[in-house]
Design a protein around this nucleic acid. Structure first.
Lengths: 189, 189
DNA sequence: CCCCCCATGTAACATGTTACATGATTGA
DNA sequence: TCAATCATGTAACATGTTACATGGGGGG
């Protein structure tokens, strides 16, 4: 048996199934058509992943009217699956997440809707901003140690990374405003 | 024999070796310490990758004074390796690159220094800007089709993607100015 | 009737992860 | 001498990629 934590692909499937039950083919179409999640849409990755999630009890499948071979199989998330998803999105945002797994972070955020309370989204965005800030500072430090002579490619690539981190930070701060409990307390205008 | 094109990790090793010959351990240290390239620094990935590159003739290795077991092995890029690297960085920037492989793009750019003429960097940045622009437009279109009601997470995640693409575009346009052949032609001030 | 899209799956393969094993060198 | 760091590698395993195989249903 396989007790590892789910892959990113598996979490993506779980999150999509949580929005709406789908067939394997429908999952594949989402990965092909959607610009959001950058996962392979090949049958060789999707179907085995769905089978694994089924075996672990995070998804369950029901065949449609079944007298054909190759029955159409619809996957629905189980309560255990919902819990796994909730635990995943609610994890603390770490510096490592920001450095190594920014896509996973955005995937987590995008699955929060309807799954967790707004204060979880709020905490997520606050932690994200903090970690992005710290990372930006370490990048700046790193850059200042780079040689000013020679080809500028290294420094420029560095600056691309920095610009990226900063834009994400700006985004997080703006997004946060939509989740903060309303600022104006009921008294006064 | 394995004739596939090199992995991203292998290109990263090739590029680093092109800057300076290193031991396997030194490559690992770079991946641990550098914020730029997000690759695994585990021996289980690095050493086999170096062996593959050696077998394919893109790297060659020389052992230091060798009467010990476990000789220290220094990898140097071959002329064939340099050619492979040059071909890789010089490829046309496609929409798919921008959507699915932005990190690879930045890696390609950062290895251009000292490897190709400035007009290659120039072309790269121009193509990059064009493709980013097209991608941004398709993202905007996609976003405008999203539901305005319900949890805002999806729309926000979308906007994060957009902000990211736009910041990269701005970067590309700024970087381009450093590679454009000097605007003022020799006549007049 | 044929082709395309819907739909599900498997097999071979390469890569990367994790954990382990080993040995050399350097400084406290 | 002991520990840390330098240094190289392998084995088991899971995942993902590519290519292939199969079959139903609808439209031209």
């Amino acid at each position: 048996m396989n007790d590892r934590r789910p892959t990113l692909l598996e979490y993506a499937l779980l999150g999509l199934a949580n929005n709406q039950p789908r067939t394997g083919y429908a999952f594949r179409k989402v990965f092909e058509a959607t610009p959001m999640a950058h996962y392979s849409s090949s049958p060789g990755s999707i179907y085995p992943a769905l089978q694994r999630l089924d075996e672990r009890g995070l998804l369950e499948s029901s065949v449609g009217d079944g007298d054909t071979l190759r029955p159409k199989r619809v996957y629905t998330v189980t309560s255990e699956g919902v819990e796994a998803l909730r635990a995943w999105v609610s994890q603390r945002v770490t510096r490592e997440d920001v450095i190594w797994r920014p896509r996973e972070l955005m995937l987590r955020f995008s699955f929060m809707g309807g799954l967790v309370d707004d204060d979880v989204s709020c905490t997520f965005l606050e932690q994200l901003a903090v970690e992005l800030d710290g990372y930006a500072r370490s990048l700046e430090e790193y850059r200042s140690a780079m040689p000013g002579h020679g080809p500028p490619h290294g420094v420029l690539a560095m600056e691309a990374g920095l610009a990226n981190v900063r834009s994400m930070k700006t985004w997080a701060k703006n997004a946060l405003r939509q989740f903060l409990p309303s600022q104006r307390s009921d008294g006064r205008g």
